[in-house]
Design a protein around this nucleic acid. Structure first.
Lengths: 195, 195
DNA sequence: GTGTCAACTTGACACTATGTCAAGTGACGT
DNA sequence: ACGTCACTTGACATAGTGTCAAGTTGACAC
């Protein structure tokens, strides 16, 4: 799956991801990453100018490793709006646990670090595109609930599939991943599809 | 409304709330609070052992000032489950903007500071109680959608009314407070009430 | 007046984590 | 032999929290 390049840069990214995944996204320091890779803390700064850039690079690295494009094929090729909505929620919802570590770390930096904020916003804007596409497909079928504008429906779906909400249900409330996907699909259908 | 006690302690809490409200919950330092009150930074530690305790006290102070109990009366006295659900979402949803500053600051500390985490969890557990009461009322009327257990319905409603989701729609997407309440009520009704 | 107590001030310091700077080492290619 | 690249070592700046010790000030008691 991964094209293990084994350069120091890639080893740094791998170590970062492992630590973030293990530590639940919190409290991973530059020195932790360095010692895991087996290099000095300062050597990290030869590869990444700062912590925010390292985290952003790590999040792109996850996408590369996990065939983000392939995951979206079922959503893009869905025949109906309803199918597209379910496929989108399935695809993105199942991707969340994979990026969760990095996402949480970036999310935590968002409030203090402007670089981290822009990077996170960029990524989230892409998610909004996915939501908009699903809403548009529903609307094209005449299936969109008329109590919401398509803009509102997009914002709402974007909120529904947020990392925070996944964290809430799957981590804090102990839901299984499968049940999370089921309920989110059901919820979205009941709220967004006209009766 | 507030019983302006004007002790140093109260002036600290007021200043903290004002700064958090103004600064959007981020980047308020102990020294900022001290200089706003007009005392030395060290004097803060004569009243509160640390930043987490100060924030927690500030959040309790908000409750005292804003008649949290009174706000819940319409929800508790609702005649039907449907009414109770709408009243609860209205009451809590309209309280979020008031506590938002403090909530965000506490939320940011949650990942690093265990004291902040327990305090926040306590408060959120109370919110879950409110959600559970609304779900129970629906169930008592036989109106609860049978695709969800009552536990699941509670978790889901708890997620729906989270501070993060309010932030997402009202701050990031620019929804009005009134529209936020409307759509959340609609969403909850469509998802939780049997057809 | 004198004593004392509480609230507050001033200033120094420890700690943690990020990020910077400068000088040095060791392997590898030519 | 020479340079260069990737890395090391160690010192240092900065920001913010929290701690410690030694004052100051004002009110109240006697």
């Amino acid at each position: 799956m991964a094209t293990e390049k084994n350069t120091t840069r890639d080893r740094i990214l791998e170590a970062t991801l492992n630590l973030l995944q293990a530590g639940g996204g919190g409290g991973v320091r530059m020195s932790d990453i360095a010692s895991t890779v087996g290099i000095s803390r300062q050597a990290l700064y030869l590869h990444f100018p700062n912590r925010a850039d390292l985290l952003v690079a790590a999040s792109r690295h996850v996408d590369d490793k996990n065939d983000i494009e392939g995951r979206l094929v079922p959503s893009r090729t869905a025949k109906t709006g309803r199918e597209r909505l379910a496929a989108w929620i399935g695809a993105f919802g199942n991707y969340i646990p994979i990026i969760h570590g990095v996402a949480k770390a970036l999310l935590a930096m968002k409030d203090t670090d402007t670089a981290a904020m822009t990077a996170w916003n960029d990524r989230m804007q892409a998610v909004r595109q996915g939501c908009a596409a699903a809403v548009d497909a529903l609307e094209a079928d005449g299936d969109l609930f008329d109590g919401l504008t398509s803009e509102e429906a997009t914002d709402w779906l974007w909120m529904l599939v947020s990392v925070r909400n996944w964290e809430h249900l799957c981590r804090e409330c102990g839901w299984s991943q499968a049940r999370y996907i089921e309920v989110m699909q059901q919820t979205a259908a009941r709220t967004l599809i006209a009766r």
